[in-house]
Design a protein around this nucleic acid. Structure first.
Lengths: 341, 341
DNA sequence: TTAAAAATCGAAAACGTTTTCGAAATCACC
DNA sequence: GGTGATTTCGAAAACGTTTTCGATTTTTAA
């Protein structure tokens, strides 16, 4: 019922709270005999320290906060797994918050976390976020922040990302090298950085290989909860530009929508039109034909983000200067059926 | 840099900490004028209370813990979303832990959470768990626990579940009513309750409709991370029992594996063999033919679990007697292509 | 035997709040 | 102007630890 505290052990043994505390923490100025007695009594009384009291005294909570923009799905699931695993390994607990792509909520949640005295926070920015003062505030208050995936270049902190532009460049170059001639792009909406970067990678790859960029071959898919967007735009592009032979989609989800339409419309993939996705979500092996895509290492991203954060927490605690790192995780092409004839 | 505390406001205003605290919390024994001064000063000094100190004093953390057995994927993603949304609405933070289906880890994590003084915990049990003393311990220490999805009947606490046996019964009855005559079952491993219950539902449905149960038509799929298990067992059953005309799979994942094999082997679904899944994961609409399945309301499960937990927390705080509830969320059949000829 | 050194312990302050309870000041009323 | 009621404030204890620093005891060395 009532948990036992230091003072319970102390009075049971007729010694002071100080001695009990020191004995439990292995201080050397306690004799082996009383130390043994304390340990035994703590064991039988089933003592566990009250973390809240410890936190107050030591001014650290061994807890990190995580703010993700979107519903826990697909890519963020992997990141979350990486975060949880590494945090567990390092002895940290993790508090999760979702900003639902809202700047105001993100700001409020960050304030909540630092009020909660988390030792650090991991964030992936909402699509709306273009003011970063809340993040700078947190850092100024000595709560380190590391950004992952959806970052802002202008804020001075550690980041772990993939190179979206390069990954997209590679994808489109791959298609070109495979002999595809008229390659469309189904892009995301205009604000998020990775949407922009993937689009730029597409454009640059075309230009680098002497293809001319045609803005009419770029379609916008801004719904990222189901594949209807890809489906409908696939239908549209095949009436407007029936002679395309490949589509680079911003997301596996969009790519799935495309393939579903093609399958229903009797358009052969990849023979008539190849499809290239992005992220390597689980379902990309479920669809038929299996989807060629870019592997986005979510698990590693979570892992290294936590790792960097905890290192920075230690640096701050020890009054060392913290060196911000920008880690760019490698992506790679996963070649499957949707692009090989 | 250094956050401001009550005493900073107090000394800036030349009043006591007590008065500041009371003013901020709206006590009525503070004059409107000093209250206004305090509020303004708190605003300009950018005061936010130190939650750790508050927690220590008030003995509550406004935080709940969640322990899930498996990697955050598929079904648990939905549950997690429900949990996060409802917790946010009720003003609670949530700490997430994964037991990786290990009893020892689950036990350790639960201890960690109550040491952290979370106000309550939500758990879904690991497959290994068959001793529930850790849960009873938590409850005895006045930390309410509510179990969801993977529960234990023998522990006395609130639970939110679906009726796996009934859902399976409904699924198989549906197949029978559709005219399928020889229905196999791809079950899960032998320990988890829902694996057992779904199997029982299958068996009872057969018997209830005058079909005879044949244990040779039951195959075990105990790998729940990919669909290879379903794929391989589909291959196996079609050589051992080529005359089956339907399979009820314990999971959408298994069902996907079956369909993938059928697609590759030229076995028509549903014309030759119908396939019925379980859970209504996103990918069940990605596969072709689209999968008929049981909708398992993960989001609602998370929602109501949090709701019940927070109510119990309040009950305990107010010294009311807590009444444990067993909530059984409704499931329903989602009819798609894989079972309609 | 004695002085110095080492070993062992505990009082007390501190972390930042909240809340009880009593004191002081102000008010209302006759 | 005196009494009682009301308003307004603050001292202090409490939440459960950790850690400093000094006090006491024991051991060692001469």
């Amino acid at each position: 019922m009532n948990d036992t505290k230091l003072i319970d052990i102390a009075s049971a043994l007729g010694i002071s709270v100080t001695t009990v505390s020191k004995a439990l923490k292995g201080y050397t100025d306690i004799s082996k005999s009383t130390r043994a007695k304390v340990l035994e009594m703590a064991e039988t009384m089933n003592y566990t320290p009250n973390s809240v009291a410890v936190n107050l005294r030591t001014n650290e909570t061994k807890t990190i906060g995580v703010i993700i923009p979107a519903t826990v799905h697909h890519f963020f699931s992997s990141v979350l797994n990486g975060i949880l695993e590494e945090a567990e390994k390092r002895g940290y607990l993790v508090i999760i918050l979702q900003s639902n792509e809202k700047y105001e909520l993100e700001k409020k949640q960050l304030a909540l976390l630092i009020q909660k005295r988390v030792d650090g926070v991991l964030m992936s920015l909402s699509n709306e976020t273009d003011d970063f003062s809340h993040i700078n505030d947190a850092i100024r208050k000595n709560t380190p922040v590391v950004l992952f995936d959806k970052i802002a270049k202008r804020v001075d902190c550690s980041k772990v990302v993939i190179n979206d532009a390069k990954a997209a460049f590679d994808a489109v170059s791959y298609l070109i090298n495979k002999g595809y001639k008229k390659i469309a792009h189904f892009r995301g909406s205009y604000v998020p950085q990775n949407s922009i970067d993937r689009f730029l990678g597409y454009k640059r790859a075309l230009e680098a290989h002497g293809f001319e960029y045609d803005s009419k071959l770029v379609y916008v898919c801004d719904n990222n909860t189901d594949f209807e967007d890809g489906y409908e735009n696939a239908q549209k592009i095949m009436t407007e530009h029936p002679d395309i032979d490949a589509i680079f989609a911003i997301t596996d989800l969009v790519a799935i929508g495309i393939i579903k339409y093609f399958n229903e419309a009797g358009i052969k993939t990849p023979d008539q039109v190849a499809v290239f996705g992005f992220s390597n979500w689980f379902m990309s092996t479920v669809i038929s034909p299996k989807l060629t895509t870019i592997d986005q290492p979510g698990f590693e991203m979570g892992h290294t983000a936590v790792s960097i954060l905890i290192d920075e927490i230690a640096d701050i605690k020890e009054n060392r200067k913290v060196e911000h790192q920008i880690i760019e995780l490698p992506t790679r092409i996963i070649e499957r059926e949707s692009t090989v004839k």
